[in-house]
Amino acid sequence: MRFDHRHLLGIEPLRPDEIETLLDLADRYVTLGRQRDKHAHALAGLTQINMFFETSTRTQASFELAGKRMGADVMSMAMQASSIKKGETLIDTAMTLNAMHPDLLVVRHPNSGAVDLLSQKVNCAVINAGDGRHEHPTQALLDALTIRRRKGRLHRLTVAICGDIAHSRVARSNILLLHKMENRVRLVAPPTLLPAGIEEFGVEVTHDMEEGLKDADVVMMLRLQKERMDGGFIPSEREYYHRYGLDAEKLRHAKEDAIVMHPGPMNRGVEIDGTLADDINRSVIQEQVEMGVAVRMAAMDLLARNLRARPTELSA
């Protein structure tokens, strides 16, 4: 079992066998999570700090719970509320926290590349919990785990990713992961929500839901990120829902047993029909949340093993 990384900054540097390793371990944490006693001890004695420079409910809660179940001392900091307001730079904040000797730093930041930058300045393991439009690796891993458990495999599937690809780090990480695992990836979006050069990522691109969903095994919906919109990407929410919102009618074009995914939080009636989202036969949205905790436990476990394998850095 190999996972040769000091940090988890993105899907891009991971090899397929490393992804499988992580998912195998996550499967075990899913089992653990369904027991009454949910404790593991992989992070016992370690300190985990969550730094979220962007608001998050589910990701932050998921990391916090994952850390606590593994026995880490977990501290969550809402960064908008603290020193950033006082003009402290990202690097200064990182250096300050670094001086407290954390072992794991979980970071979300609105700028692409900011987590990479931070990882160069600290001694601990850094996990990217989402940076700008760049990557959100644990989301792609939890999606992969959900797919693998539902479909029994993580290769040779047709996966349609629909919606605001342009502003989505979730889409980028998922495209990279699904492509690495040799799946057929289709992107479905209006042209204004597709980033330049995306067709060179080994994906099929279409502007039509029917065409995009045809015979898909997995339909992955993305949140229409209203807060990211500079304005004017789509004419109106209702036209968007009409053309790109997922409902039972559009889903008929996918395979009969196709599953519906969404990273949350959902805009019901914008990108997905509320009834469909709640349909336990098709929607795996709640399961994704459960997989999230397990995947994050697995990721932190693997990074902690690498940490423990290194000699302690003693300060003079």
């Binding site: 692409s112 980028r172 980033p195 050069g197 995306i198």
Partner: peptide, 13 residues
């Protein structure tokens, strides 16, 4: 500059 590379890096283009 917009294109595959900037998209991969998630940068505003």
């Amino acid at each position: 500059t917009s294109g595959k590379f900037a998209t991969l890096r998630g940068l505003s283009t």
